Amino acid sequence: MAEGRGVQWLDVDEQHDGQRLDNFLLAHLKGAPRTLIYRIIRRGEVRVNGGRVRAHRRLEKGDRLRVPPLRLPEKMAQEVSDNLRAVLADSLLVERPQWLLFNKPSGLAVHGGSGVTIGLIEALRQVRDDPFLELVHRIDRDTSGCLLVARSREALNTLSDELRRHGMQKRYLALVEGYWPAQLVCVETPLERFELASGERRVRVSAAGKPAETRFAVVERFDGATLVEAEPITGRTHQIRVHAADAGHAVLGDSKYGSSAGQRPAQRGGLERLFLHARALSFTDPASGERVEMQAPLAPSLTAVLARLRSTN
C-alpha cells in the first residue's frame, strides 16, 4: 500500500535557514527514499522560489518550495533492531550539548539509500529524543572511525562552515599494499565521479575531475604492506582510497580499487574488511569556541591484523 500526495508547498523558516535542500526534503517527506528525493530534484520537479535548483543548494529563510505529487510507502522507516541499538550505544564516544561523536563501525552506512534501508542517522532519530540530529560529514560504509553528528541547526551551520573552509582536520589510518616511499607525502590528482553500467558509483583520476589533495605519512612498515596516516585536505568521495591506488599502493581490503598484489599481506594478517579508519578529528566546539581533538580507537579486528603482521615481519 502507498500514500498519495498532491503538490506540496513548503516554506523555509528560521530553524531551517542554511540547510541543504536534499536534507530538508528528507526530513519533511517522511518515508521518501533518498533515491526518489534526488530524482525529483534532478528532473526539476522540485522548485525553489519558482526555479530549478541542485540538491546541495542551501535554503534561506522565506524560500518557498514546490514539491511534486508523490507516492510514499505507508511504513515510514525500518524499525531499529536490538542489535543496531546496541551498536549505536557502544559506538558513542562523546556526547556534548551541541554534538555527538561516534566511532562508526565498518559495514554500517551513515544514511539509508542505494540499497541500504536504514543508516546510522535514521536509526539515531528513532532511538534518541533529540529534536534535531544531522550528519556534519560522511564516511564510507566500509570505513570505520570518527563521525560527527550535530544536535542543533546552529551547530550544524557552524561546523559545516568550518568543514567547507578546511578548518576541520581529519586523520585516517590506512594499511596499504607494498612499500610506501617516505618521500611521497602528498598526492594531488583531480578526481571524477562516474557510474558503471550497473549503476554503481566509482571515482577515478581524471583531468576533468575536481581538485583533490591528500597528505600521507608512514607510520609503520611490514612485509608487503605499509601503515600510513592519511589527511584529506579536500573531501572528495573515496579520495584516500583512489589516491592511494593511483600511487600504486591501494588500501588493503578495498574491493573497488584494490589489486591482487594486496591479497597476500591481507591474508597473512587475517584482514576481512577495508583497512581504513578515521582515527582523529579536530574541530572548534560551536558552543565554547575551544578547539576539540577527538580520537577513535581501532577495532580489535584491525589491531589483531597489525599484531599478526608484526609477528611475521
Rank of each mutant, 00 (worst) to 15 (best):
A245E: 02
M168V: 15
V116D: 06
A89L: 07
G209T: 02
N103E: 02
E195Y: 13
G44M: 02
G199N: 11
L156M: 09
R58S: 06
Y257S: 04
R54W: 11
H28Q: 08
L191A: 07
L227R: 03
Y38V: 07
P97C: 12
N23V: 10
G50P: 06
E192K: 10
T234R: 08
W180G: 00
G258S: 05
R268P: 01
Q8I: 03
L156F: 10
T143K: 03
G112Y: 08
Q126G: 03
V218K: 03
I118G: 15
H277M: 04
D254Y: 07
R193Y: 06
V185I: 14
F216H: 03
G235H: 04
L147C: 08
V185H: 14
T312E: 12
A225W: 02
P297D: 15
A55V: 09
V67T: 00
S81T: 13
R291M: 10
S144R: 05
T237Q: 12
G44P: 00
V67P: 01
D285Y: 08
G167L: 13
A86S: 12
A296K: 02
V176C: 03
K170L: 12
V203W: 15
S260N: 14
S152R: 06
T303I: 10
G199H: 13
R279A: 13
A123E: 04
M76P: 11
V292Y: 02
D254M: 04
G4V: 11
V12G: 01
G107T: 04
A174N: 05
